[in-house]
Design a protein around this nucleic acid. Structure first.
Length: 639
RNA sequence: GCCGCUUUAGCUCCAACAGGUAGAGCAAUUCCAUGGUAAGGAAAAGGUUGCUGGUUCGAGUCCAGUAAGCGGCACCA
């Protein structure tokens, strides 16, 4: 007999070999149904894995996060078994649970297409019907290698596991897989799943390796949960900025104009201009000085900065004319370094905060391009803050806070903060350990002191220094870098930047690179998806649309209203086309215009305005002056 | 860049389902309709079916190449 201790501290004796499933069943049949797996002395145990020694147990039930992982992990195995039944030669890479489901990487001669997924799903259902038990076994490395002889993928994985630890494998019917485990015990417990897509994926995520076929799927504990998730996926499609950008005439991508080279249409440019003005004013009040520099620079400038050595792959090819070589700049730092050097700087001049709306070009891999989210010509609200060492913390923090403000004003939310550090990969980062250590320590200290929750990621730093990246999650559930604060001891060296200190000697400043709210392109994609195209009034390309009921008899007042609104700096339009009122209303709604105003006899007689807020059915009639005040209020509040 | 898929009018199209030389809705144009919160009616117009080549008497339809787009991977603001 062994003693099983429960989370509440009570213990109970069971026969050795008892399983979490049996223990749950012993407590109640409801709990047995809901139990997916268990933590046994903190280790993840399958639902049906025998417990051989006294231990503390914590059952994992369906409502827990780990349960979703266990279910999806098991569903990945279920799918693999089905794939093996259909494609006899199939070998498998890795098949983990992921945030919204699972995938499994497959190597097979056959090409698996989207239209093959239903057949695989059907086979999965059959295996579910067969209620196959999933057995865990622990082998030595030699035994495991023997078991997976001829399977290059699993062999490679086994060879990388620690030598002295037992290797677990799972057998479900005729199918055997190498796996750390945490399984639901029987294929019969898997019910509500769907295969979603096939894609290519490099073996072990390395681009020099062969490419496997990856099937993505998702698995849930109830039909409602599955359907709910599928509805979320549908909603994401409706939010896709590429679709909305076309419908609302925000931007255009065109094969002739060039891959990844976005054209901003009038509506898009209007929003962009509002954002530019917003950022300009925000920065101005925060003590930034704005500058403007060219998109072209000499090759030499980028050799000095180190970009040419470290960043060339991401740059458009060199141009040369009359023996001089130029690059299309991928960043603006070198130009700002030159501006710093344009005069002798004193310690009193620091911090010097240079800001610019920078057009830059990066040669992104063709497969990386995606709407406005990844482009090759982009405009960044960029800044370089030149500081003394003793000002680093204060200025980096101020930059961080400015970022928080901008993100909040735009109605966005930070998903997480990342501290990106270097790793040992040669050539990727500049070579001065002392500078690196110092810079990394400073950023770390800042985050810790300010209590900013963050994740450390090695190898993600810029070549010139570590950075704090602010990550947001798009409505498409992509995590992307929105803002960044980067510490740079290197460029000041390379450009030999100095300032005259209080002591009359030359000193080296430090540069803080700061990206405020990504690029206009990426920001636009995020905003479109966030608001589903229904922009808050301060951003909307058209804020008010004035519709006279009768395009003759109500025209004069409608005209006067429109003129008044334009005088108030509202982006107003009059729609007096010879179309039915219903038609004009429909169009205004389709274009998601925040305030739609209909003018008829009543309004003309009373000098009032009847408006309808986008997304609402209600019509409100107010005196003209009240409406003007309301609009000013709404715009000021950025709502 | 890599794997897979897709590409028909300005837009949206499982229109052309055994290869016989292209069809709809919306938008745009003209005419008629004076309309109170999501599409009034009519007419006429619009395409060398992404591009290049091949097979065929004949190609939107089959084949090859190429470009772009899409889903991912790798890369990244």
């Amino acid at each position: 007999m062994i003693d099983i201790r429960f989370p509440d501290g009570r213990t109970k004796a069971y026969e050795a070999g008892v399983t979490p499933e049996m223990i749950a069943g012993d407590i109640s049949s409801g709990l047995k149904k809901k139990t997916v797996a268990a933590f046994v002395d903190g280790a993840l145990y399958d639902r049906n894995r025998p417990i051989e020694q006294s231990a503390t147990i914590e059952l994992i039930t369906q409502d827990q996060e780990e349960a979703f992982e266990v279910l999806n992990h098991s569903t990945a195995h279920l799918m693999a078994q089905a794939v093996r039944r259909i494609y006899g030669d199939a070998l498998f890479g890795v098949g983990p649970p992921i945030e919204e489901g699972f995938y499994y990487d497959i190597a097979t001669e056959a090409t698996i297409r989207q239209e093959d997924l239903p057949a695989i799903e059907a086979m999965m259902r059959q295996i579910v019907q067969e209620k196959i038990e999933m057995y865990r076994e622990e082998l030595t490395r030699e035994e495991a290698l023997k078991r997976f002889e001829g399977d290059a993928y699993k062999t490679e994985l086994i060879l990388e596991l620690p030598e002295d630890e037992p290797i677990s494998i799972y057998t479900q019917g005729e199918f055997v897989d190498l796996c750390r485990g945490g399984h639901i015990g029987n294929t019969g417990h898997i019910k509500h799943f769907k295969l979603l897509s096939v894609a290519g994926a490099y073996w072990r995520g390395k681009s020099e390796n062969t490419m496997l076929q990856r099937i993505y799927g998702t698995s849930w504990f109830s039909r409602e949960a599955l359907e709910n998730h599928l509805a979320v996926l549908e909603d994401r499609k409706a939010r896709d900025h590429r679709k909305l950008g076309k419908e609302l005439k925000i931007f255009e991508l065109n094969q002739e104009a060039g891959q990844g080279l976005a054209l901003w249409l009038p509506n898009g440019y209007t929003i962009r201009k509002v954002l530019e003005d917003y950022v300009y004013n925000l920065e101005r009040r925060a003590g930034y000085k704005h500058v403007s520099t060219p998109v072209l620079g000499t090759k030499k400038l980028y050799e000095i900065s180190g970009h040419f050595a470290h960043y060339q792959e991401n740059m458009f090819p060199l141009m040369s004319r009359d023996g001089e070589e130029f690059v299309l700049r991928p960043m603006s730092c070198p130009h700002h370094m030159i501006i710093y050097k344009s005069e002798l700087r004193s310690y009193r001049d620091l911090p010097l905060r240079l800001a610019e709306i920078v057009i830059m070009h990066r040669y992104e891999a063709s497969g990386a391009l995606s709407g406005l989210e990844r482009v090759r010509a982009m405009t960044l609200t960029d800044s370089h803050i030149f500081v003394r060492k003793d000002q680093i913390k204060e200025e980096a923090l101020a930059a961080y806070k400015l970022i928080l403000q901008a993100i909040s004003d735009l109605g966005l939310k930070i998903d997480y903060v990342e501290l990106a550090l270097r790793d040992n990969e040669k050539g990727k980062f500049h070579d001065n350990d002392q500078l690196w250590d110092e810079a990394e320590a400073m950023l770390k200290a800042l985050l810790v002191e300010e209590n900013i929750e963050h994740r450390e990621v090695k190898g993600e730093a810029a070549f010139y220094g570590p950075k704090i990246d602010i990550q947001v999650r798009t409505a498409m559930n992509h995590v992307i870098t929105m803002s960044t604060v980067q510490l740079d001891f290197l460029l000041p060296e390379r450009f030999d930047l100095t300032y005259i200190g209080q002591d009359g000697e030359k000193h080296r400043p430090v540069v803080i690179h700061r990206g405020l709210i990504s690029t206009w392109e990426r920001l636009m994609s995020i905003l479109l998806e966030q608001y589903k195209g229904a922009f808050p009034t301060w951003l909307a390309p058209v804020q008010v649309k004035v519709l006279p009921v009768n395009i003759d008899s109500h025209r004069a007042y409608a005209d006067a209203l429109n003129e008044r609104f334009l005088d108030e700096d509202f982006r107003s339009e009059l729609d007096a086309r010879p179309e039915k009122l219903g038609y004009r209303i429909r169009e205004a709604q389709t274009l998601k215009i925040p305030y739609q105003i209909v003018i008829g006899d009543q309004e003309v007689a009373d000098q009032t305005v009847t408006y309808r807020r986008y997304g609402e059915k209600a019509q409100t009639t107010v005196p003209l002056e009240d409406f003007v005040a309301l609009m000013h209020q709404v715009i000021r509040d950025k709502s």
